[in-house]
Design a protein around this nucleic acid. Sequence first.
RNA 1: GCCGGAGUAGCUCAGUCGGUUAGAGCAGCGGAAUCAUAAUCCGCGUGUCGCAGGUUCGAGUCCUGCCUCCGGCACCA
Length: 500
Amino acid sequence: MAFYVTTPIYYVNGEPHLGHAYSTIAADILARHHRQRGEDVFFLTGTDEFGEPVAQQAEREGVTPRELGDRLAPRFKEMAAKVNASNDFFIRTTDEGHQRRVQEVVQRVYDNGHVYEGMYEGWYCPRCADFKTEAEIEDGNRCPIHKIELTREKEKNWFFRLSAFQEELEKLYAERPSFVEPGFRRNEALAFVRQGLQDVSLSRRRLKWGVPVPWDTDQVIYVWFDALLNYYTALSYARDGEDLTPLFWPAFHILAKDILKFHAVYWPAFLMAAGIEVPKGMFIHGFLLMEGHKMSKSLGNVLDPDQVIEMFGADALRYYCFREVSFGRDGQISPQGFEARYETELANEYGNLANRSLSMIGRYRDGVVPSADPEAELASAFEGVVERVRGLLDESELTHALDEIWKLVRRLNQYVEETAPWKLAKDETDSERLDSVLYGLAEGLRVTTLLLHAYMPDTTGRLLDALAEPDRGLPEFGSRGGGQILAELDPLFPKLQKAQ
RNA sequence: GCCGGAGUAGCUCAGUCGGUUAGAGCAGCGGAAUCAUAAUCCGCGUGUCGCAGGUUCGAGUCCUGCCUCCGGCACCA
């Protein structure tokens, strides 16, 4: 089995923020989970560097677009590393390998007769060197950036015959209901297609910052087509001298709702036109909202992932994002909420569960997990849980899967109270029961922790080491006997000093 | 305007094919315990299930109308 998951490629007209990290973490959790299943996984992220907005941002900063990309791409690369993303490659659309492959695919679409020359007419800003949409034009027919008056211009463009794919797209949605998830996003895409599709321009003549159209080098490919193709092109050159496409294509995409249309409509149509298999599917997530607003620089409500990671660690951030907000929907986040979940759930419930379990095995059994059978009462709480989590993650239900796992954490704390090992330890006749209880705790903790491993790779790794569990695959409750010698473990989620 | 979704406990939400006293987490109040990062566990809810009708033996769950909010509606990263 192979699993290929992608994040959107991030646009280099600004610094990375939590919104980018969110998509990356989501894809990473899926990638790690599929590796736990023993599958061949390829996980891609990267940067989108062509197009008008980058050219403009570069102009504002007095640098070339290339220089802007060279400065910002490493920032996004660092961000991926900081959130502990296990991506197998980092693509930049300025890569030679990408550009070459884009030209090949676009040429194929052209050869297949899905491209024609047309006239694009619209409001043009000479400073931007591009056309403006009706929505962006400011009062007085002015450019929103340069504030100068726009002129009505025409330009010869190459157009992609998107309209020809309406029927095929409808068929795709009908035959593969999970192609776009969650379902309400699929409905949006479907409604959009049913209204009728208009051809879209595939190239820009006046803009120079892009991949040249192979049969007409006076023009560059419209940034969206070059950008989407990253998912396909990366496989062809990510490994020197090896084409991974046959192994990993088609991809599964993670993206936010603002780019649904491009991914759910343009993208599969374009692939069909090129004669390439459409993606396996895609999951569209919502926005993380701070104080009710989308995070944006202009609103000044950006939650800086660097800061959060420095204080709480990457795992805590990874956990919080998918615990607090139901994945797929918009949701509120806040520093207060973050601290509350860190303290009550990570430190008190989970961290302390690990601590007390290890401590009791240390105290009552010299740090060796007893060889015993778990009590049925505890075992039943774990019945079928791995399958449920797998099933939920197959549907990218990151939050629901985490809910399911967290019930185990709570069940284990309950179990400790119910069985009160400290009482059992006082009476020699309860020795056998105590073995059973302590074994159950160690085993339950192991299973729970392996399930959490995709979400919080670092801390769970530390705990698994302490549990003397070398394996990182998906577990089964009761599959491991006792006898392991436990190691010392520092608190997984130390409480912060209360700030004054 | 058109299409779609949502309106359930103070807050965030779950309620599958209509069926027993409508649930969870958080917050709040009370209690137990001491293995543990003073961490945990137990108990406590008089909710017009947006409003008004209707179908049904029976509706949060289906139908109609209305109110409120949100999203999508073509080239916007």
